[in-house]
């Protein structure tokens, strides 16, 4: 039974990675940039929830809603202020800027909230599910995380495939100029992508900090980087790739931690990135680029 419960815990962690990885992969697909500040948006979401619940003593629903709104505004603002002026700049300049934004957010959090790790009260109050006569127990956090992940994936897939804005996103990701010729406002489409990615990051922060109830200014960095690995693992730019990559990575990390080594679990995650890049540089569902003339 312990293997199954580790496995389920892996799916829980993987669900969080998937939701974060979606933000990376969508932004990469459409703006062709790696937004390394994405992980820190999760940290900001965490501090918003912490402030609303622990400092102000308000309800978790309000905390979650405020986190989603503020993270969305933050993501769109970062894009508008830091990335949009660099639209035609070399990709290295954009990358360095993203790293700069990441450190800026971390240090702002450090100034505002201090260096001490804050402990969290879980936002999610769902009773745990007992299976197999009480031998297998799945926590409420795990249930909510996995169900949220499934619902978000379905909603996002439908949005991208069925809506006009979703089609415009695919068009921009494939050929910006051709999309402009159709009348698509590329800047607006990129801003919408950042808004969606950041809202997802806020939801990920709710799920992440409910399971790991402590937060500091660097709390977003590690899950952010691992979600990036998940996105690359699944094939960066691919939405189903981010989902599969995230889930697999979560399972590998938890099982690695239990059965191989507690200390090496992070190393195993990054080792996998290296192996994937060596064997299949485009990731599991990565697209090969070839055009018909």
């Amino acid at each position: 039974m312990s293997f199954i419960s580790y496995f389920i815990d892996g799916i829980r962690l993987g669900s969080v990675y998937s939701i974060i990885a979606l933000g990376y992969t969508m932004v990469y697909g459409i703006a062709k940039m790696l937004n390394f500040a994405h992980g820190d948006v999760i940290m900001v979401g965490g501090f918003v929830i912490f402030t609303v619940m622990s400092t102000w003593g308000l309800s978790p629903v309000f905390a979650v809603l405020l986190a989603i709104i503020l993270c969305t505004v933050l993501g769109v603002s970062i894009e508008r202020i830091a990335y949009r002026p660099l639209r035609k700049a070399p990709s290295l300049a954009v990358l360095i800027t993203a790293i700069g934004v990441s450190y800026l957010l971390q240090n702002l959090a450090l100034i505002i909230f201090g260096a001490n790790t804050k402990s969290f009260t879980s936002v999610i109050s769902v009773p745990s599910l007992k299976l197999a006569g009480g031998k297998l127990s799945i926590s409420g956090e795990t249930l909510v995380t996995i169900i949220s992940c499934i619902v978000l994936m379905i909603a996002l897939t439908l949005f991208v495939k069925r809506s006009k804005t979703g089609r415009a996103m695919i068009a921009v990701s494939e050929d910006k100029d051709a999309a402009v010729l159709m009348g698509v406002n590329v800047n607006k489409t990129i801003a919408i992508t950042f808004a969606i990615g950041s809202a997802l990051a806020a939801i990920a922060s709710v799920l992440q900090f409910s399971s790991i109830p402590s937060i500091s200014s660097t709390s977003g960095a590690m899950p952010g980087i691992k979600a990036f690995v998940a996105a690359v693992f699944g094939g960066i730019g691919s939405i189903p790739g981010a989902m599969i990559g995230g889930i697999l990575l979560g399972i590998i990390e938890i099982l690695g931690r239990r059965y191989i080594s507690m200390e090496l679990s992070d190393a195993i995650v990054f080792l996998i990135l290296i192996i994937v890049l060596l064997v299949k540089p485009t990731g599991i569902l990565g697209k090969k680029h070839h055009e018909k003339v």
């Binding site: 068009a171 494939e174 050929d175 051709a178 055009e291 003339v293």
Partner: peptide, 12 residues
């Protein structure tokens, strides 16, 4: 504008 090389959206 019908661009050179068609530029249709291959994933749509």
């Amino acid at each position: 504008h019908v661009p050179e090389g068609r530029r249709v959206f291959s994933q749509l």
